[in-house]
Amino acid sequence: MKMRLTATHIILTVLAFVVVLIWLLPFYWAVSVSLRPPSMTFTCKGLCFPYLQFPPTLEHWKTELSSREMLRALLNSSIIAFTASFFTLVLGTPAAYALARFRFSPRLVVIFAFVFCAILAFTAASFGVDWRLALLAAFVIFLGFAMTLGNRFEKRLGNEDITLWFLSQRFLPPIVTVVPFLLIMSQFKLIDTRLALILVNITFNLPFAIVIMRQAFIDLPIELEEAAMVDGASFFGSFYRVALRLTAPVMAATLMIILAFCWNELLFALNLGTLKAKTIPALLAGSASTRGIQFWFVAVRALIALIPPTILALLAQRYIVRGLTFGAVKG
């Protein structure tokens, strides 16, 4: 494209810069508020540039960053985000590889039978039948189905259907599973532990990791792995040494995106991490009611929450479009 200095061009360029400035403004304003001395919070007029209109102070940041609950929340959030995103990839990557390279063709009728028996067992158990008995009976019925009807109907599902099944969980409103998770976690005495939140975050990000990584493996020429196998590498060897190495950049970007998702998770953090396992978003959620709306305080806390995922977004910049569309657009 050639640069032409026409009037239209100049106007549109200025317009683009104005748009970017408007988008930056909330960040700037929060920083400005967080640096103001308390007496200036409400009295500052205009754009409130630090140094020009008020002497900036780091006092609020110091108070906030030395408070025990903030430090604990930072620690909790970091531990949960890192552990959960790591294990999401450990679980998800092999599945993604399997869906990219092998053919799976489960019979539709067998899946139907499985779902039917699961619902049967569950219904029986919820009306008071001993759950072990219900599970056993359902399993026997399922085996009977699979042996007799399983070979009658030819309709099979493919890898695409399995991938879409994983993807569909991403569209699920998380609020649906809040109560079951609460009840399950209290059954295992995991309420208010980091482990509970790690499990939840793995569950919600697993489909994402599978869909993204599957696309990355599909984009990788299969010949490279076949060549490695011809040279004597085992199947695991070619997966580990060739496929994983070559998709490392995508994997790193996926890890960062999942880290940000885990860091941002609020709904389950509110329910499952009430005290000891409180994360940053859950800590923020309590702010308004405990301290009222204190301006500088809100600004500092918001910024503390925002900074880590924003840095991750910068680091994963090249993969951001791919990440947010679950791999549908390469960007």
């Binding site: 918001a302 929450a305 925002l306």
Partner: peptide, 14 residues
């Protein structure tokens, strides 16, 4: 792209 990964609750407070 900065707002895309920003913590939604942080955005609300901001």
């Amino acid at each position: 792209t900065l707002p895309l990964f920003a913590t939604p609750i942080g955005v609300g407070y901001m």
